[in-house]
Write a protein that binds this DNA or RNA. Sequence first.
DNA 1: TTGGACTCTATAGTTGGCTAGAGAGTTTAA
DNA 2: TTAAACTCTCTAGCCAACTATAGAGTCCAA
Lengths: 138, 138
Amino acid sequence: MAVATRLKIGDVAKQTGVAVGALRYYESLGLLSSERGDNGYRYYSPEAVHQVQFIKKAQALGFSLDDVGDVLNVHQRGDVPCEFVQSLLQDKIQQLETQIQQMTAFKADLEQYRDRWAEAHPRPQPGDICPLIETVPL
Amino acid sequence: MAVATRLKIGDVAKQTGVAVGALRYYESLGLLSSERGDNGYRYYSPEAVHQVQFIKKAQALGFSLDDVGDVLNVHQRGDVPCEFVQSLLQDKIQQLETQIQQMTAFKADLEQYRDRWAEAHPRPQPGDICPLIETVPL
DNA sequence: TTGGACTCTATAGTTGGCTAGAGAGTTTAA
DNA sequence: TTAAACTCTCTAGCCAACTATAGAGTCCAA
């Protein structure tokens, strides 16, 4: 009993759906830490699961592991001023803002294209051309 | 005179900011086409510039060149029904929609974290800890 | 006409984010 | 106690999307 919360790498892998190899890779990048047992095994706390989920989430949104590292590694106290955390987060938020705007605009482009095209081809005839490239919206 | 609109690969590169090598790479993937002169040089029409810009735009939003190809290559008429164009576009639009939603949610997460953190550290003391990892929002 | 800028093909190398072994030790359930 | 399952390190390989380099031909302006 006692330490009910020592997860082995396989446990973390199962709970997160992330491969064992990937977890070791994250560790090599300093994104994830573990304690080593006498056997040399990595042991994780339950928070590690959350951390991995955070990594996956950020990654799914286009952040590189390096980006994630920028945010996460700041937990090394002392030499790094706390304001730096703020500005990092602010940067990431701003990046998201910009990307969301671009995506929204691009989506509108595609929708406009879809509708314009549908107008021109209300009932596509057999043998009809689909002049996609020439009319691609910009 | 006559053919005022025959761009060489370097011209396209300059106008789009995309490297010559990348343009040749796009061609190898079937995303971009050119005519060959007697000298073996590639010659492009001005629309090629727009096409490259479209590729870059889609790419910046997280679409792979393969995705872009799915959309662009459909211009090969005949065997591909026009409905396919529609469903491709619809897929891409749906993808964007989903991604925009996720990003918006994630941005809210980060903002909440930023604000929560700022509350707890109204005036960071020298030597203060920045317990980023432990409190990362999910 | 010549030399610098441009183009060609082909091959190799790079970065990011992993996966896939090999070979060896460890844990655990029957 | 033993065999399957798990873990370790290390090295190699893979995919995407390029970039870089070599060796050779082409264009064009002075």
